[in-house]
């Protein structure tokens, strides 16, 4: 039996079926990331685990204990909120010691734990300040510190980096990864940023419309997406998906074929597997993204990623070859077809 076990967990908001029976087994020490488009139920699922939303069906087990209906405080979980939710009238130190104080831990032990956490997070010099005297990144660290001092069984993060600017986000992402290695704590992390998902996760859970589309390591999701949704959701820019008959290699039962932008190469016009005109060229320095309308059809636009700088302009006619070993085939219902067909 795994550490944290979701068994057919469901959620209704009145008659809106928000979470449609989630089964998920999380091992001790794993870093799990929930991703999915906006409104897919990531936050709801996390809040159900936290105990902030009632679970309407199914079971939630943590370390062999049924916590489906336990009070949030009795679940042995700690959560870092998107808005940080620091207590504005308390100092950093009081914020971090609040839970321990309520749990009647001895003052000496509280002091010890808070100081250790503050040291880990570089907060020692800010202990006497109130949240409004801190920068966004520092507040973020206090929120994490508040979770750490409780030594919970599972850490929950709901889009913790979305209020930070791009540079700080990258830095904090590295810090969170470092912290996870150091503490080895089981972590569930919600984000809609796939870079965060790919870099932090041991396993990624892709959600859509209240169900799990696929669970796997970041590279599994990238290399062998279970269906068209995951294929297009993971990877920037998106996988190109076109009707199968446009390609040379075919697969039994496939109606659509997908290929990632980096698995295609430009050839002379008329000689490629696909041919079309260049719609736009995005030069990003390290790479170039070429948008091509296949057969001049704007509905069938693909993106080719090149790592050299081609001499192309909008309107040029080009041919494209796809790497036959890297094709993804999708059946009419969107599920991926694998193996020799």
């Amino acid at each position: 039996m795994s550490y944290l076990d979701l068994q057919g967990v469901e959620k209704y908001y009145d008659d809106f079926y928000a979470i449609k029976g989630i089964d998920l087994a999380i091992e001790k020490g794993e870093f799990i990331v929930f991703v999915g488009p906006s409104g897919c139920g990531k936050s709801t699922l996390l809040r159900m685990i936290a105990g902030l939303e009632d679970i309407n069906g199914g079971q939630l087990m943590l370390d062999g204990r049924d916590i489906t209906h336990a009070e949030p405080a009795h679940r042995d979980l700690a959560m870092v909120f998107q808005s940080y939710a620091l207590y504005p009238h308390m100092t950093v130190e009081e914020n971090m010691s609040f839970a321990l104080k309520l749990a009647k831990v001895s003052p000496a032990e509280i002091k010890d734990k808070v100081e250790k956490a503050a040291e880990k997070l570089n907060l020692t010099q800010y202990l006497k300040r109130t949240p409004k005297e801190l920068s966004g990144g520092q507040r973020q660290r206090v929120a994490i510190g508040r979770a750490i001092v409780r030594s919970p069984k599972v850490f929950l993060f709901d889009e913790p980096l979305s209020n930070l600017d791009a540079a700080l986000r990258g830095q904090t992402r590295v810090e969170i990864a470092h912290l996870h290695r150091e503490l080895g704590a089981t972590t569930i992390y919600v984000t809609h940023d796939q870079v965060e998902a790919m870099t932090l996760a041991d396993r990624v859970v892709v959600l859509q419309g209240g169900i799990i589309e696929q669970v796997g390591t970041p590279l599994e999701l990238y290399d062998t997406p279970a269906n068209k949704f995951v294929a297009q959701f993971i990877g920037m820019p998106q996988m190109n998906i076109l009707p199968s008959q446009l390609f040379r290699s075919q697969h039994e039962g496939a109606v659509e074929t997908g290929v990632r932008p980096e698995h295609m190469a430009l050839v002379a016009h008329g000689e490629g597997e696909l041919n079309g005109d260049v719609e736009m060229v995005e030069s990003l320095g390290n790479e170039t993204l070429v948008h091509i309308n296949v057969n001049g059809n704007v509905q069938q636009q693909i993106i080719v990623r090149l790592y050299e700088r081609p001499n192309l302009r909008a309107g040029d006619m080009v041919g494209v070859d796809a790497d036959a070993s890297r094709l993804h085939f999708f059946a009419a219902d969107g599920s991926a077809l694998r193996g020799e067909g």
């Binding site: 936290a50 902030l52 959560m79 939710a85 620091l86 207590y87």
Partner: peptide, 9 residues
């Protein structure tokens, strides 16, 4: 904040 307090017990 209230939810955080609930989780803090």
């Amino acid at each position: 904040q209230l939810e955080a307090a609930r989780m803090d017990g």
